[in-house]
């Protein structure tokens, strides 16, 4: 049996989590104050994921760039591939919050969406 300590990143509370693991099997998660902590611990030890945020260029808009995010969390090892794909993206104004900027980023099946709008 192995004990692993993690800090939950689910919310700003940052609960200290202790996970008991037997081989690849998770026996218990303690230290969390809400169900998000349990889910985070299990995911972090099997398939760690993150939401990625960045910006893309806007053409003909009232701002130079707009902010974007992956609509869901993507595998941690795809973060750099995701940012790289966004490097060459340029979007024509108008853009609205929630508009899909790039589909299936880095083959993750997750879309990148705008988190800010830009009018002409």
């Amino acid at each position: 049996m192995k004990k692993i300590n993690l800090i939950c990143i689910g919310c700003p509370m940052g609960c200290p989590l202790t996970i008991e693991k037997d081989g690849s099997k998770i026996i218990s998660v303690t230290g969390n104050t809400c169900p998000r902590g349990d889910a985070y611990a299990r995911k972090e030890l099997t398939n760690p994921t993150r939401i990625v945020t960045s910006t893309v260029a806007v053409e003909g808009g009232d701002v130079m760039r707009i902010s974007v995010k992956t609509k869901q969390d993507i595998p941690k090892d795809k973060i750099f591939a995701c940012v790289k794909e966004l490097k060459n993206v340029s979007i024509k104004a108008p853009v609205h919050i929630g508009d899909v900027i790039l589909e299936n980023v880095a083959g993750t099946g997750v879309d990148v969406v705008a988190t800010k709008g830009s009018s002409w």
Partner: peptide, 25 residues
């Protein structure tokens, strides 16, 4: 908030995780 493009805003207020510009919007 307009320059805080990272996520993690709004868990208390809106019960979901938003970026800064979304929270402001």
């Amino acid at each position: 908030l307009n320059q805080c493009i990272h996520n993690g805003f709004g868990l208390h207020t809106f019960k979901e995780e938003l970026t800064g510009p979304e929270y402001a919007a």
